[in-house]
């Protein structure tokens, strides 16, 4: 009787545990990370990016940031294209996280210019006043060790060349972190695919409207001031006091951003808010 025989009992208990394990944990290896979900363009991390990733792990960034966009409307609007299995084949370990105290970072790469990240990592509150993200200024003080990173690349079996390793000399942990953040989610051309074309004439719905201008001012303060300065004097981004752009043209820039210039698009604010912003910027105030 198994209730009297501990060894027999333990064998049966092990079998009970192994059924679900075999089906839901072992079996998926047959399909996941095979040719079936391979994506063209997904590349291993460079030595600098991989070191940045290891620093991301060391600092426990995954405790507050996720790295998977779910195929849900609000989520795709907020972060970008949903995540695909093939994008993660070089991720050891995975860094999907389980809590969004801060925003998801799966599509962060290419959203902001490098300068934004350097400033934000050093002092997040200088860019986003009410954030609770800690400051990471000391990353600027820690030099990288090329030999350690070479050994890591060997362990991972990722391709690298001596030039990449030599380039690490003189670089800091901050450089590595920013390089990693800029790589995130940018292996597939999702930004290009998601670009929306504006059809028809663009007509300013609130020309000269004082309420719209003051609403636009508030939107500027929380979304634009970090890069363009509190008084539009220009910092990371250019000065915005005298742009000389037509309303419709400015709307296009705000809506789509200037990907090559490091300006993110703000289409997810919605057309009303973007027009308010246009009216503020072109109000001459």
């Amino acid at each position: 009787m198994l209730e009297k025989k501990p060894v027999l009992f333990m064998i049966l208990a092990t079998l009970a545990i192994l059924v679900g394990t075999a089906v839901t944990m072992v079996l998926p290896f047959v399909w996941v990370n095979t040719a079936a979900d391979r994506i063209e363009g997904v590349t291993p991390y460079t030595p600098l990016q991989q070191e940045g990733r290891d620093i991301y792990i060391r600092e426990g960034c995954n405790n507050c940031h996720t790295q998977t966009v779910r195929p849900l409307v609000a989520e795709v609007l907020r972060y970008g294209d949903y995540s695909k299995s093939g994008e993660f084949v070089y991720d050891r370990p995975f860094l999907w996280g389980s809590k969004r105290t801060g925003p998801d970072l799966a599509r962060l790469g290419g959203k902001y210019p490098d300068a934004w990240h350097y400033k934000h990592m050093k002092s997040p509150r200088s860019m986003v006043p009410k954030t609770n993200m800690p400051d990471y200024p000391w990353l600027n003080d820690n030099p990288l060790d090329p030999d350690v990173i070479r050994n890591k690349m060997e362990t991972l079996g990722f391709p690298y060349d001596d030039e990449q390793i030599a380039d690490l000399t003189g670089k800091t942990e901050m450089d590595a972190m920013v390089a990693y953040l800029q790589k995130l989610g940018s292996d597939i051309p999702w930004r290009k695919a998601a670009e929306t074309t504006i059809v028809g004439d663009l007509t300013n719905p609130f020309p000269g409207d004082a309420a719209a201008i003051s609403a636009g001012q508030a939107i500027y303060a929380s979304n634009c001031a970090a890069c363009h300065g509190d008084n539009r004097e220009g910092m990371i981004g250019p000065e915005l006091t005298d742009m000389g752009m037509e309303d419709a043209e400015l709307y296009q820039v705000l809506h789509n951003g200037i990907p090559d210039g490091g300006m993110p698009g703000f289409s997810n604010l919605g057309s009303t808010k973007v027009w308010q912003l246009v009216n503020f910027l072109n109000s001459g105030q």
């Binding site: 990370n33 050891r92 370990p93 362990t155």
Partner: peptide, 24 residues
């Protein structure tokens, strides 16, 4: 995991597999 040094190792599984094993 595969150790790279005394206090650094890389998971034996990658990406989606690693996620699935981990939450199992």
């Amino acid at each position: 995991a595969v150790p790279a040094s005394l206090f650094k190792s890389y998971s034996a599984y990658a990406g989606t597999n690693d996620a699935n094993v981990h939450w199992w």
